[in-house]
């Protein structure tokens, strides 16, 4: 299988006054195409910092990062913006939809920055909303939708640009158990039917159960990395 994410000896140091703190301490991790990885760990263990690195939102202090075989650790911020747009889809804990903007327009946003023309944008956004079962909510504003619906809009936004990798940072953190299960079913679907590579940060073991591989963090380092046998979750 192709390596889509490959980080080598990643170090991220935060400087606060005289003391420095290594949020990531020499982390190496490889994720192959089609994997569904859960990253777990207590808060402050470095899992979110790693997600920011993988998501090209932050730059490491040292180390290398290859995304789809391309070295992104030396890219400029504009090049990174382009990578985020084309290769990555983000799903956040707090949904992060743009307020007072309809579901359809929110889903169109990544395509606007990709320079896709409006007619095609609308068509693709509608298709993505249909995949997440929200075709009847196209013109709803975020504040007119439940948390589960908002997260599904965010998932539609993450997949609309055909990004091969989906990064989800505590996607069920703000949802109740029932909606969490619904949302996780979508991720499983995306992984299995649409062959998306998914990296998901969570601290809930129940949620990690949906994933094929679980990587645990502790004090900025990988504590364990377990690949489960398929269908183990049932």
């Amino acid at each position: 299988m192709r390596k889509v994410i490959e980080v080598k000896n990643l170090i991220k140091t935060y400087q606060t006054g005289d003391t420095s703190f290594n949020a990531l301490n020499n982390v190496s991790l490889t994720v192959e195409e089609g994997e569904f990885v859960a990253i777990m760990g207590a808060s402050g263990s470095g899992k979110s910092t790693l997600m920011n690195m993988i998501g090209c939102l932050d730059k490491p202090t040292s180390g290398q990062y290859f995304l789809d075989g391309i070295d992104v650790s030396t890219m400029t911020s504009d090049e990174l913006a382009n990578i985020r747009n084309k290769k990555l889809g983000f799903v956040f804990q707090g949904f992060n939809l743009i307020s007072r903007t309809t579901a359809l327009e929110n889903v169109q946003l990544p395509m606007i920055y990709a320079g896709i023309k409006e007619s095609e944008r609308i068509e693709r956004a509608k298709r993505a909303l249909k995949i997440v079962g929200l075709e009847k909510r196209e013109s709803h504003m975020p504040n007119q939708m439940s948390g589960g619906q908002q997260q599904r809009v965010a998932i539609a936004r993450a997949i609309v640009n055909d990004a091969p990798i989906i990064l989800a940072d505590e996607p069920t953190g703000n949802l109740d158990t029932k909606t969490s299960i619904e949302v996780m079913e979508f991720f499983v679907d995306l992984n299995e039917k649409h062959n998306k590579t998914i990296v998901l940060v969570t601290h809930e073991p129940d949620i990690a159960e949906y994933c094929k591989r679980v990587v645990k963090f502790r004090d900025g380092q990988i504590e364990s990395d377990i690949v489960k046998v398929k269908n183990d979750r049932f």
Binding site: G55, L57, S77, D78, A81, N82, R84, N85, K86, F90, N96, L97, I98, L109, P110, Y113, A114, R157, N161
Partner: peptide, 9 residues
């Protein structure tokens, strides 16, 4: 949000 989903400078 816009930056995360691909808006550049």
């Amino acid at each position: 949000i816009r930056m995360a989903i691909g808006a550049n400078v």
